[in-house]
Design a protein around this nucleic acid. Structure first.
Length: 241
DNA sequence: AAGGGGAGGAGGCAGCATAG
DNA sequence: CTATGCTGCCTCCTCCCCTT
């Protein structure tokens, strides 16, 4: 029995393994390259005093912080890899304007992990790039629908609406274009897989995959806690149906 | 008037590709 | 090899509107 009906076990396991390897390397690097980026000595002294911790505790916290920074840079990429492994979806190389394309469904997508990943003034440029790709008659993607995907949305509800940020040149909003859309992760996973619970099912499967790869088992209260975090991010509507 | 919250600006840290 | 520029993710701050 396949772990998830919409993606092969091999692909899923490889994607998860990749992130685990990155996590491991990040932790190692925080030891070996601890001073690669100049530490803020003032920050250190105020943390030790203000958080009431010892130097040893600060050292652990700082290494964890550095490793977490590295790892988080790849979480968005994880979704891009997974989604690019479904059906006729393609994960475009870095350097391309967009992250994902499906020529059958005529959809292109830019994947960001969190709603506040891109600052306001940069949304302006993103909109214009998307507008160009789907509107320009010489574009490969003329007539496609472009999605700006925020895997983790601002509020724990599903959204699939016009993406019309404000034009930083003019200070007014771009016009609402039906083919340039803002969508959350749960909704976009549904478009890609056809399964309304795909994102939640992926999340639920991760402990199993991780255990296969590492032998490490998640405690049941840890899993319950993880489910709560998911519900805080996406609401609890995933459990229906 | 005070406080919550959204929008937008700025900046820090990290990875990666590439130029020199 | 190092330096540099670009991109991604996250945090902090300020301004401003709206509710209480």
């Amino acid at each position: 029995m396949q772990l998830l009906p919409w993606i092969s076990d091999e692909f899923l396991i490889n994607a998860v393994e990749k992130l685990l390897i990155i996590a491991d390397k990040s932790l190692q690097k925080s030891e070996t390259d601890f001073n690669k980026n100049v530490l803020d000595p003032f920050s250190a002294i105020f943390q030790i005093a203000g958080f009431n911790i010892s130097h040893d505790e600060w050292l652990i916290a700082e290494k964890t912080r550095q490793a977490q920074k590295s790892l988080q840079n790849h979480v968005g990429d994880f979704h891009q890899i997974i989604l690019g492994g479904v059906g006729s979806w393609e994960n475009l190389e870095t350097g391309q304007i967009m992250d994902l394309v499906n020529h059958d469904k005529k959809i292109i997508a830019e994947i960001k992990n969190k709603y506040n990943t891109v600052k306001g003034s940069d949304l302006s440029g993103l909109y214009q790039a998307m507008e160009n790709l789907v509107s320009n008659k010489y574009s490969t993607f003329k007539g496609y629908t472009a999605y700006y995907v925020t895997i983790i949305p601002k509020k724990p509800t599903r959204i699939n609406t016009f993406f019309n940020p404000s034009d930083k040149e003019k200070g007014t909003k771009f016009s609402e274009n039906h083919d340039i859309r803002l969508i959350d992760g749960a909704s976009f996973y549904e478009i890609v897989t056809g399964d309304p619970n795909a994102l939640f099912n992926l999340y639920q499967t991760l402990p199993t995959v991780i255990q296969k790869l590492t032998g490490k088992e998640f405690k049941s209260d840890t899993i319950n806690q993880m489910i709560k975090y998911f519900e805080l991010a996406y609401g609890s509507s995933h459990s229906k149906g």
